[in-house]
Amino acid sequence: MIIMSNVDFYCEGHVAHVRLNRPKSLNAISGDMDQALLEAWEEINRNPEIWVAVLSAEGDRAFCVGADVSGGTERQSRMALGGGLTGIGGPLVKLEKPLIAAVQGYALGGGFELAMCADIIVAAENAQFGLPETKAGIIGECGVVHRAIRQLPHRIGMAMILTGDRMPAKDALHYGLVNEVVEPAELESAAARWAEKVASASPLANRAAKDAVLSRLGYPLEVALATRFETIENYASSEDVVEGRNAFVEKRKPEWKGR
Rank of each mutant, 00 (worst) to 15 (best):
E49H: 14
G72W: 11
A224M: 02
F129Y: 06
V54W: 02
V103I: 04
N6G: 01
Q151C: 09
R61C: 03
L114Y: 00
E58S: 14
L177M: 11
M4N: 14
K253L: 07
H174K: 14
N179E: 12
L92M: 14
Y219I: 00
A201W: 03
N206W: 09
I139Q: 13
L85N: 01
V223N: 00
S25C: 06
F112K: 04
V223D: 02
D211G: 00
L204I: 13
E58L: 02
A169F: 01
K197E: 13
R61I: 02
G82Q: 05
R216E: 07
P91L: 08
S189P: 01
V182W: 02
L152T: 05
P23Q: 14
G13M: 05
E113I: 09
N234R: 14
H146Q: 07
V93T: 12
E125C: 06
G84Y: 06
A124H: 03
N6K: 11
M1A: 15
L55N: 10
Y175M: 11
V65N: 00
P132R: 09
P153D: 09
S5K: 11
V15Y: 03
N21W: 00
R61T: 12
N206L: 10
L204H: 00
S5L: 01
G130I: 08
P153Y: 01
E196I: 06
E233G: 05
S202Y: 03
G258P: 00
L108T: 01
E49T: 15
G72C: 01
N234D: 08
P220K: 05
V54F: 03
A124Q: 05
K94E: 13
V249M: 15
R259G: 11
E243Q: 12
L225Q: 07
M167G: 09
A169E: 02
A36C: 12
V182G: 05
P132G: 09
A172P: 02
G90I: 00
G258T: 08
R78Y: 15
R46H: 13
A67F: 04
T163Y: 05
G164N: 09
A118D: 10
A16C: 12
L55A: 04
R46T: 14
E255Q: 14
E42T: 11
L85R: 11
V69C: 12
E196K: 13
A199D: 11
L177F: 04
E133N: 10
A102G: 13
L173S: 04
I149L: 15
R46Y: 08
P91G: 00
E230T: 15
C64N: 15
E39P: 01
R252L: 08
K94M: 04
A123H: 06
E250T: 02
G176A: 03
L108W: 07
